[in-house]
């Protein structure tokens, strides 16, 4: 699944619009991730050079944020909503069930890269609680059994 990393030249082109000391680090990281689905390791140095800073500072900043990934996305990305309404309506039992059905902790990727499980933050679609997002689409008003069936279908590749 691991696609070849983009070339340095391609990365340099991609971030060439960004300038030092203009608040461009997060926009540059976003642009790389929007393009490749993750931040390839080589992009750290390219961005550092472009922004006249150090790879350590770029890497340090990047890893502070939950949504920058150093790993290509899986085919099916499941995000479990950790919000309070989901929790009150049994969401934590859904997490238990998902983790055991998929054999992954939150933040885990399946070995073949087909699916991954993440922690999602509440975005105020609480009338769908408890919910998960499958590749960004809400699957809501779930029972635990629904969540297990969904996870099994994803695991079996259906």
């Amino acid at each position: 699944m691991a696609a070849a990393e983009p070339s340095l030249e391609e990365l340099r082109q991609l971030v060439s619009e960004f300038r030092p000391n203009r608040g461009h680090l997060l926009p540059a990281l976003h642009k790389v991730q929007d393009t490749y689905g993750y931040i390839p390791r080589s992009a750290i140095e390219v961005i550092a050079r472009q922004l006249n800073t150090t790879p350590a500072l770029v890497y340090g900043a990047m890893t502070f944020y939950a949504e920058f990934r150093t790993h290509p996305p899986a085919q099916t990305e499941i995000a479990w909503c950790s919000g309070p309404t989901c929790r009150i309506l049994g969401g934590d039992r859904i997490r238990e069930a998902l983790e055991h059905t998929l054999g992954l902790p939150l933040g885990g990727y399946s070995e073949d890269g087909r699916y991954a499980l993440h922690l999602g933050q509440c975005n105020g679609t609480c009338s769908e609680a408890p919910q998960v997002w499958v590749n960004g689409r809400v699957v809501g008003r779930l029972t635990v059994a629904d969540a297990i069936r969904l996870a099994r279908r994803i695991r079996e590749g259906a």
Binding site: L26, A66, F68
Partner: peptide, 10 residues
């Protein structure tokens, strides 16, 4: 005015 996107940090 610049619209700036966060990256997941409370």
């Amino acid at each position: 005015l610049i619209v700036f996107r966060g990256a997941g940090s409370y």
